[in-house]
């Protein structure tokens, strides 16, 4: 029984098959069930009928659902761009010759450790009590109301999301920057290349794979945003900050909407798959280029 031989040792089946079966029962089966329910009018209990694509039509025409998709995309795009720009800047700062480098690195990574829900509660207090107090004292009208009760509620949520997500993205960029050889910079400096040009011509291409990792991970994470919204606005005011995840949770367990939200979940799955495939294509192309 050689490891490279043709015959497979039965022990290997024992190592995989039981957990694969469990995985099928508790992960794949619910997923398939969800797809199945999305074609029925099941309420989560009682009788049901097949209704064809009715739920999908509903999903695409219900303004609450389309509204939540628009909001989720807006939020995910804004968060992805801001988080990546800011974390890259932060990583470059942390990678330069500074004092207390390790301490600063640990401080900036700290938010990653803390639960999103509690961070949401803490910032909820800041937006509802601290900022308005500050705004009133200094007569700044823009700051004297709770941002979470306005049209701009999503910015409040964005701030919290950035606050927490910066940590992870910065860490990845930092890992990328540390792979860049200093001599390349030095050579560039000798050739009189400016800072901005240096960044786009040298740094960025070298850390591109790390950029891709961050993009893949952040977009997916932001599309699923849930905890911070439940902690801060519950999806309000109105439906302004209701992400798809929040909508599925809030509506999915209501009788009339169980099947509809199952359809919504399937659509969400397709969206995630499509985005991931696009991202992987881009990643592959870039790697081809680099080689």
């Amino acid at each position: 029984m050689k490891i490279t031989g043709k015959k497979i040792n039965p022990a290997f089946y024992l190592m995989t098959i039981p957990i694969a079966i469990l995985f099928f029962i508790f992960h794949t089966l619910p997923f398939l069930k969800g797809v199945f329910y999305s074609f029925t009018d099941w309420q989560g209990y009682g009788n049901w009928n097949f209704v064809g694509l009715k739920n999908y039509l509903y999903v695409f025409t219900d303004p609450d659902v389309t509204g939540s998709y628009i909001f989720t995309f807006k939020f995910a795009i804004a968060a992805t761009i801001l988080v990546n720009v800011l974390s890259l800047l932060l990583a470059m700062g942390l990678n330069s010759k500074i004092k207390f480098q390790n301490t600063l690195k640990s401080i900036y990574f700290l938010p990653y450790m803390l639960g999103t829900l509690i961070i949401g509660f803490v910032f909820n207090f800041i937006f509802a009590n601290l900022v308005p107090q500050f705004g009133k004292t200094f007569g700044i009208s823009a700051l004297s109301t709770n941002i979470l009760g306005t049209d701009h509620a999503w910015i409040g949520i964005l701030i919290v999301t950035i606050w927490q997500s910066l940590a992870f993205n910065t860490l990845i960029y930092l890992a990328g920057l540390q792979t860049v050889d200093h001599e390349i910079y030095e050579a560039a400096e000798m050739d009189g290349v400016g800072t901005i040009k240096k960044f786009f011509k040298i740094t960025f291409p070298l850390i591109a794979p790390f950029f891709t990792i961050n993009m893949v991970l952040s977009v997916k994470g932001f599309l699923m945003a849930f905890d911070q919204i439940m902690a801060m606005t519950g999806g309000g005011p109105g439906n302004l900050t209701t992400t798809i995840s929040v909508l599925i949770y809030k509506r999915g367990f209501q009788g009339g909407q169980f099947a509809v939200q199952s359809a919504n979940a399937v659509v969400l799955f397709l969206v995630v798959v499509i985005i991931s495939i696009i991202q992987l294509r881009v990643l592959e192309k870039r790697e081809e280029k680099l080689n």
Partner: peptide, 20 residues
Amino acid sequence: YFISAMFIPFNVLMLPLVKQ
């Protein structure tokens, strides 16, 4: 099979999973 399951967000299987 396992790798592709990474694309399935928890929310997608949440409703049936809760029942199951």
